[in-house]
Computed example of a mutant assay.
Amino acid sequence: MTSEKDIIQSAQARGRVFDAPSGHWVYRVLPNRLWPYAQLARWDRPIGWWLLLWPCWWATALAATAGARTGDPLVTVLPSFWHLLLFLIGAIAMRGAGCTYNDLADEDIDNQVARTRSRPLPSGQVTRSQARLFLALQALVGLVVLVQFNRFTIVLAVASLAIVAVYPFMKRITNWPQLVLGLAFSWGALVGWSAHFGTLGWPPVLLYAGSILWVIGYDTIYAHQDKEDDALVGVRSTARLFGSRTREALMILYGGALALFLGAFALAEVPMPAIAGLLAAGAHMYRQISVLDIDDPAECLRLFKSNTVVGWLIFLGLVAGGLWTVVKPLV
């Protein structure tokens, strides 16, 4: 029987992370010499940038829907396509930059964990200098995207970099690194709103708070994959903190997220279709909790990835709510 060590060594020999998804376009389109950089940026694992993107898109759609209730016929009820595109490009670039930075900070830990030992830095496929240069290039793309927005949004987005900078080190000093990840990954809830209005308000603040709880929840599920290795190397996480009480913790986290999202929708006075999308997302969250097996890494990964469904349900509900403001008077 082939051991995990043999699988990892075989993957390293082929220039791939051992658990890299087979058949991905990265390995079919890019030349082999670029694979390590694609793996640093996690281009072969799009779930990360989707999860970073959703708070941005939610806030963009929420702002458009909130603007539609002003009665101004010139105010669109649909989120700005230009803003959605900018957030998409920015999410891919900054998630890649964040992962590259995280790998630079965690090279010593990654070298001790079976699942991450074959990553480009610990396996020697790229040098630290090459990784730093790649990080700078990705950050430059993010900067080009950022300067397309208003001044308030630029300052607001730059403020998030302090959280991003400290995140990789939190797993060494606190049982709540997922909270810090939530603070960083949810920042788009503030930026998406400010890009539309040039200011903030209670709806995006509540959306941001709810997204933080959502992030803690799904990243706790993700962290259960590595809890045994994490215990050996001294890495902390909410997965280790909650342990066998993870289901109960997720009920509180996901329930709190839904309540805060509902508060944001109420303050923005979004129509009923948006609430329907939120209820559908809640049903999906409940199913995650009901089928979760914290001792099955493959199941944890599958449930973690399924949170993009939550993102789509909430976003499409908000878009439908905006359209309803136009359709309702005609009915």
Score class of each variant (00 low, 15 high):
residue 11 A to D: 05
residue 12 Q to V: 13
residue 13 A to I: 04
residue 14 R to Y: 00
residue 15 G to Y: 08
residue 17 V to T: 09
residue 19 D to R: 15
residue 20 A to Q: 04
residue 21 P to C: 08
residue 24 H to M: 05
residue 26 V to P: 05
residue 28 R to V: 05
residue 29 V to I: 15
residue 29 V to T: 10
residue 29 V to Y: 12
residue 30 L to K: 11
residue 30 L to H: 12
residue 32 N to S: 15
residue 33 R to A: 14
residue 33 R to G: 11
residue 33 R to Y: 15
residue 33 R to L: 12
residue 34 L to G: 02
residue 35 W to E: 01
residue 35 W to M: 01
residue 35 W to T: 08
residue 36 P to C: 08
residue 36 P to W: 08
residue 36 P to S: 06
residue 37 Y to Q: 02
residue 38 A to F: 06
residue 38 A to E: 05
residue 39 Q to R: 09
residue 42 R to H: 14
residue 43 W to D: 02
residue 43 W to Q: 10
residue 44 D to A: 13
residue 45 R to T: 07
residue 46 P to C: 00
residue 47 I to T: 13
residue 47 I to V: 15
residue 47 I to R: 04
residue 49 W to F: 15
residue 49 W to Y: 13
residue 51 L to F: 11
residue 51 L to V: 12
residue 53 L to H: 05
residue 54 W to I: 13
residue 54 W to R: 00
residue 54 W to C: 08
residue 58 W to P: 02
residue 60 T to Y: 00
residue 62 L to Q: 00
residue 62 L to G: 04
residue 64 A to N: 03
residue 65 T to D: 12
residue 66 A to M: 01
residue 70 T to I: 05
residue 70 T to A: 01
residue 70 T to L: 12
residue 70 T to S: 10
residue 70 T to Q: 02
residue 71 G to M: 03
residue 71 G to L: 01
residue 73 P to D: 06
residue 76 T to S: 15
residue 76 T to M: 05
residue 77 V to K: 03
residue 77 V to H: 08
residue 78 L to K: 04
residue 78 L to E: 05
residue 80 S to F: 03
residue 81 F to W: 14
residue 81 F to Q: 13
residue 83 H to M: 11
residue 84 L to F: 10
residue 85 L to D: 10
residue 86 L to E: 00
residue 86 L to V: 13
residue 88 L to S: 15
residue 88 L to W: 14
residue 90 G to N: 09
residue 91 A to M: 09
residue 91 A to P: 05
residue 93 A to Y: 05
residue 94 M to H: 07
residue 94 M to P: 03
residue 95 R to Q: 12
residue 96 G to K: 07
residue 96 G to P: 11
residue 96 G to N: 06
residue 96 G to E: 10
residue 97 A to H: 07
residue 99 C to K: 07
residue 100 T to Y: 02
residue 100 T to E: 11
residue 101 Y to S: 11
residue 103 D to S: 09
residue 103 D to P: 09
residue 104 L to W: 02
residue 104 L to R: 08
residue 105 A to Q: 09
residue 105 A to T: 05
residue 106 D to E: 07
residue 106 D to M: 13
residue 107 E to G: 01
residue 107 E to Y: 05
